[in-house]
């Protein structure tokens, strides 16, 4: 793979993410990895549902009392939008428009960081109320499930920022195109998991 090959939007392949063997391998491997991640979150969801509202006798915390949908709605919108902007970034990646891709990735990062900020606020709010990680089985299951997702957001942010900084000066080539593509795939996965958290944890929690 020659890094010095200069591409134009015309000569840039249709699928830069898997037009080399290395890219193909990364593409398939990452999808498989996401399969394993899916099982991880499935296990966490199952545990959460089993331990929902379970705690020491006399525990006053329940999903109905704790969760506030407006805040979670804002978070959901932020993350869903960031997924959309990462699609725009990949659209420009495929058209060999590096600057536009970087710009949309920047928007994605900002939206993701805002989501993370709200999540930190939410967690500290719960802790402030006394709903700490050690308070009950329910609290442990909640913080581990939602916190694991939050950790994924953090890793995703770090990953995208590293890619943007590392490649800022040299633009797109067939070596880094798969990397950008996979980071965006990861970001979509995080988004999909959040849709399930929003539904299973928050909506089903508030509705009973």
């Amino acid at each position: 793979m020659d890094l010095n090959t200069k591409y134009t939007p015309q000569s840039w392949p249709d699928h830069p993410e898997n037009s080399t063997l290395e890219g193909k391998n990364k593409f398939v491997g990452f999808w498989l990895f996401l399969g394993g991640e899916t099982v991880t979150f499935a296990s966490l969801f199952a545990t959460y549902l089993a331990l929902k509202n379970k705690g020491p006798s006399g525990m006053e915390f329940t999903t109905q009392g704790l969760f506030e949908l407006p805040l979670v709605f804002i978070m959901t919108m932020l993350l869903l939008t960031s997924s959309l902007t990462s699609v725009y970034a990949m659209y420009h990646m495929k058209n060999y428009n590096f600057k536009a891709m970087q710009a949309w990735l920047m928007v994605t990062v900002l939206l993701g960081a805002a989501f993370l900020g709200f999540e930190i606020y939410e967690f500290s709010h719960y802790v402030h109320l006394g709903f700490t990680f050690n308070q009950s089985a329910f609290s442990s299951a909640f913080f581990i499930l939602v916190g694991t997702h939050g950790a994924h957001v953090l890793v995703g942010l770090g990953w995208i920022i590293l890619l943007m900084v590392r490649n800022a000066k040299r633009g797109l080539n067939l070596y880094n195109a798969p990397k950008f593509y996979l980071a965006s795939l990861y970001w979509h996965f995080i988004d999909v998991v959040w849709v399930f958290i929003f539904t299973v944890v928050y909506l089903m929690g508030v509705m009973g």
């Binding site: 331990l51 020491p56 009950s136 089985a137 299951a141």
Partner: peptide
């Protein structure tokens, strides 16, 4: 200090 398996804390 988690409580996943401790039944006195609601765990299973």
């Amino acid at each position: 200090g988690g409580n996943f398996f401790d039944h006195t804390m609601g765990g299973n």
